[in-house]
Design a protein around this nucleic acid. Sequence first.
DNA 1: ATGGTAGCGTTGCTA
Length: 263
Amino acid sequence: MRLVTWNINSIRLRIDLVRRLTSVMAPDVLCLQEIKVDDPLFPLAACEEMGYPHVAFHGMKGYNGVAVLSKLPIDDVRTPSWCGREDRRHLVARLANGVSVHCLYIPAGGDIPDPETNDKFAHKLDFVRELTDWYASNLRPTDKAILAGDFNIAPLENDVWSHKQMLRVISHTPVEVDLLERFQASVPFVDAVRHFVPHSERLYTWWSYRSADWEKNDRGRRLDHVWVTPCLAPSLRGAMVAREARSWVQPSDHVPVMIDLDL
DNA sequence: ATGGTAGCGTTGCTA
C-alpha cells in the first residue's frame, strides 16, 4: 500500500496538481490538509475521476480542512475536534484492509514563541497535549494505524536549515519539539520517513513562499510527517519526499511525502 | 531588525 500526505493549500485552486501527483505517484491513499473548502463545494467528482472512489472530507470555508482519498473502501470515518474548537483539522478513516488512516493538521502557532502572549502558540501546544492524551488511551501498539499530515513541527536538528537559528522560531522551539516527542512516544509511533533517511541527512518538506529562490537558499523545514504504529513498522518498504513538486507551476509551499508498506 | 508571498473572499486573517 502506498500512502502520500500533502498540504495542498486549497484543493480547488490546485486540483490539477492533485491530478498530476496521483498520475505520477499513484498512491492508494492520499491525505490532504488545508483543503480550504466548505464541504458542499468539495471537488468530489474530480477525485473519483482520478481513480479514488472512496473519499472522506471535513472542510470549512477559507481555512484548514482535511481529506482522505482512497482506492480501498473506507468503512468508517471520524472527525475529532480539539481544544473545544471546530477547526476541521483531523479525520480518521478506517480502511477495509484493517488499517486506520489518521489525517492531521496541527495549528501553525503564529509568530511569537510565547504561549503567555500568543494565543495561537498556546492553542498549538494545547492541541498537541490533547492529541497525546487521546492517542495514549485510544491507540495500542498492536493497532494498525498511520498518522499522516502537516504537524507544523520540525523535531530534528536536520529537519531545519539552521538548528541554532530556528530554536526561537515556531516549528522548532524546544517546548513544541518536546511535546511532539512525547506525543510520538505515547503509542509509540515510528517515524516512517526517518526510518529510511538517517538523522544526519537534511530533509525538508516545506519552503516558505516568502523566500526568493527557495531552491538555491534551501531554507526548508520538515513539517510534514508520516508515523506508523509499531506493528506496521516491519511492513515499511520505503519513503520519499517529492521535493520536485515545489517547482511545479503555482505550487503549494509544502511537498508530498510518500511511504510504501507491504501489508 | 525587517519584510518578504500566497489563498480566501473581500479587505483582514491565516500561514
